[in-house]
Computed example of a mutant assay.
Amino acid sequence: MTTPDVSPAETPAAPMPTLSVLDLIPVRSGQSTGEALRASTALARTADELGYHRYWVAEHHNTTSVASTNPPVLIAMLASATQRIRLGSGGMMLPNHSPLVVAEQFSLLEAAFPGRIDLGLGRAPGTDALTRFVLRGQEMEDADQAVARFPQYVQDIAMLMRPEGVEISYGQRRQGLRATPNAVSVPTTWLLGSSDYSAALAAQLGLPYVFAHHFFGEGTAQAIARYRDNYQPSEAFPEPTTFLTVNASVAETADEAFRMAIPHIQSMIALRTGGPFNAQRTVDEAEEIGFPDAHLSMVEQIREKWIIDDTTNAQRRIAEFAAEHGVDEVMVQPVGGALASDPIDAAPSREKTLRLLAS
């Protein structure tokens, strides 16, 4: 009796994770700050309508191609323009700010939009030395100390945002201090990082953690493992809680997805090689310039690490990426550029990426 041929069982496809959005509020050539803000507002509405889970804005200063200078202001604007999506900072760079100011800002946001606010905190200044000095209004030595005080600042913010606040010894007396008069809920605090430092601190404090995979695309597995292996359960988060970020450009074909990503790729290469970091080019301008031979290997590395693909393959790669790292949420930074013919206050390519991934 012959044994019938049996095809090996196909490996089940990885499930699509929950999707969220990271936005740096890019400013392209010929575009004003107000027009860039209107484009991002439309993008946030699209994410809200499509069922994306959260929408975070970054903090960058004194950069000609990025308008996300003030996350609390942007969060208020975007929360008012949307219905259900969570809004947050990706992140507030604590060395630049007083802990009390951050606690006050996010306590007010939570009061205005209860259950929809995330406070992502980062340790890096995220800007140049001059801007860092002006932001703090202090000597540079004090700004360096602010980085070293990051663990204490994180805990100070958490205590200040509690409904009961905190009591502090001041002179000969003790005085109560709270971020807002009568809080009934608090924002969810996340620690952000691109190294092992924040992973270890988040584990120690029992806080959610996000590794900035979209920035370099390296060290992700090590950081996540360090966080999970050393996690100390907290009342709010008995289990480690994390997701990952990734850059994405999605179109009907992989070639078109790459074409739309060229302006952002050129900006990232300029950042890494010390080149000029100007307003982001349109796709038309970027195609005309292209890439010098010396940068082609870097372009290929970026294509491997980013999600630049057609719809089917982009969805598959995101699902596999989430499964590889054991996360059930992926935050996408849509990096498609704009055509010269696109409306100046819209971002059709970035919106298309969100629509195709959610399809």
Rank of each mutant, 00 (worst) to 15 (best):
A112Y: 14
L119M: 05
N96H: 13
L119A: 05
R116K: 10
Q105C: 11
R116S: 08
E104R: 06
G90I: 08
Q105S: 15
G115M: 11
V101Q: 11
M93Y: 13
R116V: 02
L109M: 07
V102A: 12
G88L: 06
N96V: 11
E104N: 12
M93K: 14
D118C: 02
P99K: 01
M92Y: 08
L109Y: 04
G88M: 02
R86T: 00
G115W: 06
P95H: 14
G88R: 07
Q105Y: 00
F113N: 11
A111V: 03
L94Q: 07
L87M: 15
L119K: 06
R116C: 10
A111D: 13
H97P: 12
N96S: 13
L100H: 03
L94F: 05
H97K: 11
L121C: 10
R116E: 06
L100S: 02
L94A: 06
G90R: 09
L100I: 04
F106K: 03
D118N: 10
I117S: 00
M92E: 05
N96E: 14
G90H: 00
G91P: 05
I117G: 07
M93L: 15
V101N: 10
L119F: 04
R116W: 08
L94D: 08
L87R: 00
P114L: 10
I117R: 08
E104L: 05
M92R: 03
V101M: 13
L108T: 15
G91M: 10
G91F: 02
R116M: 09
L108R: 12
G115P: 11
G88N: 00
F113R: 09
G115E: 12
P95M: 13
G88I: 08
V101C: 04
F106T: 01
L94K: 09
L121Y: 05
G120M: 03
F106C: 05
N96P: 13
A112L: 15
E104T: 11
L109E: 05
G88T: 07
A112K: 12
Q105N: 14
L121N: 04
L94V: 09
A103I: 08
F106N: 04
S98T: 02
V101L: 14
L119Q: 00
A112H: 12
R86N: 08
V102T: 12
L121I: 07
R116L: 05
M93G: 11
E104C: 08
L121M: 15
G90F: 02
G90M: 11
G120Q: 00
L119D: 04
F113T: 10
A103N: 00
G90T: 05
G90P: 04
Q105P: 00
I117D: 03
I117W: 01
P99I: 06
G91E: 08
F113P: 09
F106Q: 03
G122L: 10
L108V: 15
P95S: 13
S107M: 06
M92F: 02
D118R: 01
L109K: 10
V102Q: 04
G115I: 03
L121F: 04
G120F: 02
P99Y: 04
L94H: 06
E110T: 10
F106E: 03
G120Y: 04
G90E: 02
G90Q: 06
L100R: 04
S98A: 15
G91T: 12
E104Y: 11
V101D: 06
A112D: 05
G122W: 15
M93F: 13
L100P: 01
H97M: 09
H97R: 11
N96L: 15
L94G: 07
R86H: 12
G115L: 07
H97I: 10
A112P: 09
I117M: 07
L94E: 07
G91Q: 01
